[in-house]
């Protein structure tokens, strides 16, 4: 059983992390590794696509908090996209939309990155 996997792709200089499965204290280590790798490669523009994520606990939320400052201080960002209502409710309840840009679809998030370049 695949508990959690990340499929990474690059579109127009933006790294997309497609999350699949559940993100808890066990699997969030994988996401941390993915962000560490992006930092090492100086890829600071990141979109996280949640369309195939079925569950998130605070351990998963913590990963985004751990990397957002780094990404922004390097002229990048972590933009979140394609969340189910169930996942969005968790982010929303804790007030994450104050700090993070959350978009319904990945294309809009991508456009926002392109706009900020012009």
């Amino acid at each position: 059983m695949d508990e959690f996997k990340i499929i990474r792709e690059e579109i127009d200089g933006v790294s997309i992390l497609n999350l699949d499965g559940f993100l808890d204290a066990h699997t969030s280590v994988e996401l941390e590794k993915a962000f560490e790798e992006l930092k090492k490669e100086s890829n600071f523009k990141v979109i996280v696509n949640f369309s195939r994520l079925t569950y998130i606990s605070s351990a998963g939320l913590g990963v985004f908090m751990a990397f957002i400052e780094d990404m922004r201080s390097n002229k990048g960002d972590i933009k979140l996209s394609e969340m189910s209502e169930k996942i969005y409710n968790i982010f929303d309840m804790l007030g994450f939309p104050v700090l993070f840009e959350i978009y319904k679809d990945q294309d809009t998030a991508l456009k926002k990155f392109n706009e900020s370049e012009n």
Partner: peptide, 12 residues
């Protein structure tokens, strides 16, 4: 304050 200071953890 949590978001201003980019805190990690403590949400459980």
């Amino acid at each position: 304050e949590y978001f201003k200071s980019f805190r990690v953890g403590g949400l459980g």
